[in-house]
Design a protein around this nucleic acid. Structure first.
Lengths: 255, 255
DNA sequence: CGACACCTTGAAGAGGTTCAAGAAATGTGG
DNA sequence: CCACATTTCTTGAACCTCTTCAAGGTGTCG
């Protein structure tokens, strides 16, 4: 776990500890969330060999875009990203929000071109892992191969969860599930279990949840009125986590 | 491509050509859709070594269930499956429909337990590929490793598409996208480009598309009235494919 | 301080759901 | 092979949730 207080909201992140181009997974405080999870020190060194460079992505800029040639998998070192798909007719669907330690780019393996956009929600930094090398080293380090499979598998399962949310939940339930998911991932990273800063706009939340931004806003307001959360712009405090869980589990009278 | 007529609907499938327990990918007429896609004959033999058994799954039975220990990846040889997730409060979300040549079970890699149910929509048969072996052989056959990654990646991208559908499309658009997707996959397998038999109920379609079965039924009826499709229970004939494409692309007045 | 992006709230409207009833297909057992 | 039970599908009417449109408020950054 990192050095920051476990009760602090994710409001102020620090600049990278070291700005070396050369990665040192073994010294990165994200190693428990990132690709090296569960690898032995030796295996971790193998991963370090793959991480040749880092890359900074400014707020609003793309790490990659739909259609870009696929070259690398990225591990988020700092900052938050959204991934989204666009359609010809201008529809835009946010497919995920991604925080430190999570991997981006797997969408590109299938066709050798990226199939979505990865946009930084704030100044961000990623470790670049060329897929060719990752793939080669995977054949030598079975644990790494397994782990990479595991990460892709979890992404598939995560998306099942989103499908469930989009396919069968009402606005209030979707938002509760969203907030609980965020806070759970943040608390695993040492942030507060009850307080968080939304790095994305209401519109982006709405896009992710299949709602309009007005609905997101209204639903937040309603939960606030009910004393379940406290919402001040992007700062969110959870006053009754159990109530949120009850809402997700449909124990609120909805059918 | 198989021997059946390219204009035939997928109404009557044949029993497996051979019921050998031992797989012969190199002789399977699904090899172009299945795991061995693009592998050299020698690499294909490596896959054959992994496919130790086949398994028959009766209509309505589960190939695996949410929570089952994960052991194998399955390649569909015959029949169609749905995958679905259940929630505590009895919600059920169909996450996909799967046809011959497609792989099932990747959801289990992440946690060593399956994260959804795979149910046969009719009597079905799968090739069983123990993941441990698949994984081992992948380290020896890089092309297989790559290909397996590719398949998982495509599953992620497919789910992005479903999220777009669930998050931003109206009922009519969802159903049009669904039908076009089905017919595209069927035509790749040598079936008709304009005719198909739905292997699932209206309720299952609705669950997949985030709609109620009544809405699915009504939407089919409306499209039929408009002369775009002909719907007779589970038999569906597309009369105006272009119109369907226009509906998906939002060129119907919706915003 | 002003421009701009973002957020909130209200009122009217549309799309999909719910409830209900009946029709059509499918399966089962005699 | 037919009768009956069951499942699946269709259709109507009332209702409800979320969207749309509109206006104003809040926060932020040059």
């Amino acid at each position: 776990m990192s050095a920051r207080s476990a009760t602090q909201a994710n409001g102020c992140e620090y600049p990278p500890v070291s700005a070396d181009a050369r990665a040192t997974c073994s010294q990165c405080n994200l190693r428990e969330f990132c690709l090296p999870v569960g690898l032995s020190p030796q295996e971790m060194y193998a991963v370090e060999d793959v991480v040749t460079t880092r890359r900074v992505v400014e707020k609003g800029e793309a790490l990659y875009r739909d259609g870009d040639p696929f070259t690398s998998i990225y591990a988020i070192r700092l900052g938050n990203f959204k991934t989204c798909v666009n359609t010809l007719d201008g529809r835009d669907q946010v497919t995920g929000f991604h925080m430190t330690g999570e991997l981006l780019g797997m969408d590109g393996i299938g066709t050798n071109r990226h199939a979505c956009n990865a946009i930084a929600l704030e100044r961000a930094e990623v470790c670049v892992m060329p897929y060719g090398q990752l793939s080669t080293i995977s054949t030598e380090v079975p644990a790494l191969q397994r782990h990479f499979h595991r990460i892709m598998s979890r992404e598939i399962v995560r998306e099942h969860g989103v499908m469930l949310l989009l396919g069968s939940m009402r606005a209030e339930e979707r938002l509760a599930a969203f907030v609980l998911n965020l806070v759970q991932r943040l608390s695993a990273r040492g942030f507060s279990k009850s307080e968080l800063v939304l790095r994305m706009t209401r519109e982006e939340i709405g896009s992710y949840l299949g709602l309009k931004l007005e609905t997101v806003s209204r639903t937040f307001s309603k939960s606030a009125e009910e004393g379940i959360v406290e919402v001040k712009q992007r700062h969110l405090r959870m006053l009754d986590t159990e109530a949120l869980k009850r809402i997700v589990n449909g124990q609120q009278c909805h059918n």
